[in-house]
Design a protein around this nucleic acid. Structure first.
Lengths: 264, 264
DNA sequence: CAAGACTTTTGGTCAGGCCATATTCACGGT
DNA sequence: ACCGTGAATATGGCCTGACCAAAAGTCTTG
């Protein structure tokens, strides 16, 4: 191995080559994804890899760190670097089926807290955005547009963002993602909407006012009230429809709802 | 700098310290997030950083690569490494590393609510499981086992499960998954633990007692207190190091200033 | 005064070394 | 024969020192 001749072949590449460790990392990833190295197995030793790729050991180490940070491999000192299981997916909220009531209950708790936190640090600009989304909501309602969803989601997301906490934002986004991807939830919500009780703009405005006043307790209370109301309307819609069959099931949900309301 | 005496003080530490590059990366991130280095500005040269942190240049390079992959900095060959703009950006939550503080803050809020909800409906069997995990925790602490994690996670998961809400369970599992998959977070927690303040079994026991008494408010309060304490210890551990690093930098600057003054 | 050449700074990489831990395996006791 | 047990060995972790190439700063020169 020479320490300097690595550029001897650079005559044709005016474009700056990526750093060496990146090239090596890519090659290694390619090998792993081509199942040259199965999950759970050990990669060749750093010294061997260095020889294989014709680079120095530090470079191999850098590449390994890149794979490590991408969760492709795990490094065990004194033992070797091992290929990890599934590098794929990451949707933590797996496809498991969450019911609409569970979902909304979770939102009531979590978004309530998020609102309380946001109240302490929301900016004027974010407040303005909230006001704008409220206007959109009104407009959507007047136009009879069914999907008043857009402005609704926007409203809640701005609040999540106002917490300045990416973990909270990610969590709430995840809950909305479930809601949007779950058939059951969608249909229940639809029914609830059709049965009159539209998610009132007023409830949202209560939240907005609390945030504007930077009143954490009031914000939490308003947000919870809003989502509790959503649960209520879902319950009514469901109950009215499923008379006998789902009776027990639904009553169970109602009991539960009362519990949740109690801890607030 | 010596090449081998770095372990001289390791006689008593059963806990495996994180790799050096991770520790350095964390300190750097702490400095950046503390606005010691503003966005767009240049970090000290690798050789300087090596001197500052008392490590070799290859280690600094590894740490810089970690920051680079996390989009904290950008490396320009021949020029330097530059701090990038906002690190938060888009909604792509899964592949983005959330900071350890954000994560724990989110947990404090969400798990607090989960505990409150769980208090109203937790079963005797689940309480027994909690008690068992507390015992495990004590045992792990005595055995000096580093990963007191196992019992800890079990404890929190039982509570999440006791809410009987799969959305809540999934959310809290997700937060733990982030914690486990993020190396930087893990390292911060590790340090917090090493620096004395172990996540006390007492705090967990407070939560347990509140749940056993089916006292929602007390459960929420205890859970929050526990996680707030975790944040506190992380802050202390991080701050101490950030300050130390900053001091090195400062004294260096002072030396330079004196030189400049002398030759002026 | 500006354009080009020289020098310095800074990242990029290599080479080779020693240490600590993990794993292996042969050895000796039972 | 079986099972510890302790010495090799393999492997990652980190360090020192060096040289190259690109960028940036400095100086000379037309």
């Amino acid at each position: 191995m020479n320490g300097k001749a690595k550029h001897t072949s650079s005559a044709e590449r005016p474009a700056r080559e990526p750093r060496l460790y990146q090239q090596v990392a890519e090659k290694l990833i390619a090998l792993i994804e081509a199942h040259q190295y199965e999950a759970g197995t050990r990669l060749p030793a750093e010294r061997e890899l260095a020889a294989m790729f014709g680079v120095s050991r530090p470079t191999i180490r850098e590449a390994v760190i890149a794979l490590e940070l991408a969760h492709y491999v795990e490094v065990r000192m004194g033992s070797g670097v091992y290929v990890l299981e599934y590098k794929k997916d990451k949707s933590r909220f797996s496809d498991q089926d969450v019911g609409p009531f569970e979902l909304t209950e979770a939102r009531a708790l979590f978004e309530g807290e998020a609102a309380a936190l946001a109240a302490t640090m929301i900016t004027d600009e974010q407040l303005a955005q909230l006001a704008a989304s409220l206007d959109e909501m009104v407009e959507e309602n007047e136009n009879g547009i069914d999907s008043h969803e857009v402005a609704d989601k926007k409203f809640h997301m701005i609040i999540a963002q106002a917490t300045n906490n990416s973990a909270i934002l990610a969590t709430i986004e995840g809950l909305w993602a479930i809601r949007e991807s779950s058939m059951l939830t969608a249909s229940t919500l639809q029914k609830a909407r059709n049965s009159g009780l539209r998610p009132s703009v007023e409830q949202h405005r209560d939240v907005y006012n609390a945030l504007k006043a930077h009143d954490a307790a009031a914000a939490r209370k308003a947000m919870r009230a809003h989502l509790m109301a959503v649960i209520e309307s879902m319950l009514e819609a469901t109950e009215a429809e499923a008379v006998a069959a789902a009776r027990t099931q639904t009553s169970k949900s109602r009991d539960r709802f009362n519990l949740t309301k109690a801890i607030g």
